[in-house]
Design a protein around this nucleic acid. Structure first.
Lengths: 114, 114
DNA sequence: GTTAGTAGGTACCTAGAGGAAAGTGACTAT
DNA sequence: ATAGTCACTTTCCTCTAGGTACCTACTAAC
């Protein structure tokens, strides 16, 4: 994609901020190691198919690790990797920005809509 | 969306990191005030229709400002707002993370694909 | 008179992401 | 025998973001 030409952070945005990846990473970073269903329940509206897709992608990118326990019923645990954990400061900054500036965005919107 | 339940940064992600908004904000932050066509050319592959849509959205959210000069041919200038400029540190962090960790991601991918 | 340039608007269309629902395999508990 | 658990997988379907292509008004310049 040529948008990378104009924007050096496009690749990392694709990695971290595409649909569903942010809540997954956030949840794993916040609450630690977790099983598939627990993740599913915490995120709430995600379907198992999409959750699997995103988890595979995040595992391939090295941002999370997957541990399979061959039991019955099977148990799989997901955990944020060291690489994934290195995103924590960025998440923190975003949360800070959000707290500080989202009200401004709301005000701008109602100003614009008038 | 209930993903906001699990993830407090989901709203700001929607705002700043949805498709095309990142390169637009980045470019305006990097190169200052700019006309429509210049933005179009710098980003490269965006179509005017979508560029207009994204610019309207960013203006509504208060992240950029639009100045219309009623001349012929018309001249419109876009500029990042103070609110938008407050995202600069986050962009910087992302660029840093990218420089430091994208190679790791690449390595993880080839490891996974084997 | 026709071409070029600007900042879009409009109508149409398509690809692909994502949702819904059901199935799978292996075992366990009742 | 039946139901339930887990971690998916598969099939089908929908929906919409985004792309293509064309149109607009206005004037200067060639």
């Amino acid at each position: 994609m040529e948008s990378e030409l104009a924007c050096p952070i496009a690749p990392v945005v694709d990695l971290v901020f595409s649909r569903w990846t942010t809540p997954i990473l956030w949840t794993l970073n916040q609450h630690g190691r977790m099983r598939f269903v627990e993740l599913e329940r915490r995120i709430g509206t995600i379907t198992p198919k999409v959750l699997t897709q995103r988890l595979r992608q995040l595992e391939r990118d090295g941002l999370i690790t997957r541990t399979y326990h061959p039991e019955v019923p099977p148990r799989v645990e997901y955990e944020i990797s060291e690489l994934g954990r290195s995103l924590a400061p960025i998440f923190h900054n975003l949360a800070e920005w959000s707290k500080r500036n989202l009200p401004e965005v709301e005000k701008a919107r109602s100003r614009y809509d008038r």
